[in-house]
Design a protein around this nucleic acid. Sequence first.
DNA 1: ACCTGAACACCGTTCAAGT
DNA 2: ACCTGAACACCGTTCAAGT
Lengths: 218, 218
Amino acid sequence: MKRPRRGRPGKVELDFDIVVDAALQMADDDGLEGLSMRKLADDLGAGVMSLYYYIEDKEALVDAIVDRVAAEVEPAPAEADWKESTRHLAMATHQALLRHPWAIPLWSSSRPGPHRVTLMEQILAALASADLDADVVDLGFHAVVNHVQGFARQRVGFQTARSTDEARLRPGGFDVDLDEFPHVVAHIDYHRSGHGRHDEFAFVLDLILAGLERLPGS
Amino acid sequence: MKRPRRGRPGKVELDFDIVVDAALQMADDDGLEGLSMRKLADDLGAGVMSLYYYIEDKEALVDAIVDRVAAEVEPAPAEADWKESTRHLAMATHQALLRHPWAIPLWSSSRPGPHRVTLMEQILAALASADLDADVVDLGFHAVVNHVQGFARQRVGFQTARSTDEARLRPGGFDVDLDEFPHVVAHIDYHRSGHGRHDEFAFVLDLILAGLERLPGS
DNA sequence: ACCTGAACACCGTTCAAGT
DNA sequence: ACCTGAACACCGTTCAAGT
């Protein structure tokens, strides 16, 4: 089960992007807890400590790969109005997060890099271009961001528990008897069985955007 | 910097609750990454491996302390209507999360224990008792849950970066020049400077609840 | 039934050094 | 300027054993 090496120990071509690329690949393959400095160096055929010439520490590396995910979000087309732009950015972010599920819990907790700041700027700019009160812009920003993150989280959560039986038996490491929780069971079943709307993410997103217009200024 | 011990090595009183209590305390004191099996055993004056008699592994222990946080959320008073109940549960959850910030990223990613399932049941039951379509109940549930988690996350995020200057200089480990991001700067300033509404959490929550009533059924 | 130490297979990072 | 190995200070957990 040895990993393939890119070169012989002794001299290896390395730079920031090569390190971050390999780290992103490793997180995609093995999840966040599968990413270690030592395995990463091994993958690259370098000594562990060589990595530290290009990055401060592991945390900075993780910040960097999260920012790579943010970089995958394309800007909205120039001719889009505020609602279309916001919608585009939210959907593209949602898709990027589903491509890199390990990034979901990090999306708001790790500190933002340049691409994530750019993404924030684009969303805020789109909302600001609407005829909305400053309070409503702020509120809308958080509503959209929370929706994106919350929905992605929920989605990968349900991927984990495949069958209803599995969910019934151990919703945690605990033995929770779901018979006592009829609404929870109904909720799980609702989500499991196609539940009417095929794209609930977009549906709720549109509700949020429509809601913003109807809001009293201040 | 030795930790105080509760007994002499050789014989210690231990049970599931004692272990979980100590783990919760340690997470509150030192954060999640400050919680280690070895330090925990030390705290309790026990050998590390003694802990494994009561818990499966560290992950199960973390699930348990997260569930303890859920246990702190009081049920809504019986006479409350659906909106008051939902509001109560959301606010109480928000406060519990602020008391245990380490639990915020775990709130939706770790698997729910009995108390968190109970909390879900209560929220779902409250929404179901309203005269809302099943789709709207589902949508409202996620809107409320996302709001609680997203807002808590945002709140502790801002606690980290104290001054505007600090945020300007390094929003990440990156050197992002915020001058290029005027809307982001405005957004940060808006949040920093009292921003009109004193309790934005409750304000947005009420908007969500009011919005649910106005929604078309299906 | 309950608790244990030794050992294993890992981590991230400091440091002083090599080219 | 770039890369390194040895060492340090940690981890969580398996195992075989003790009472």
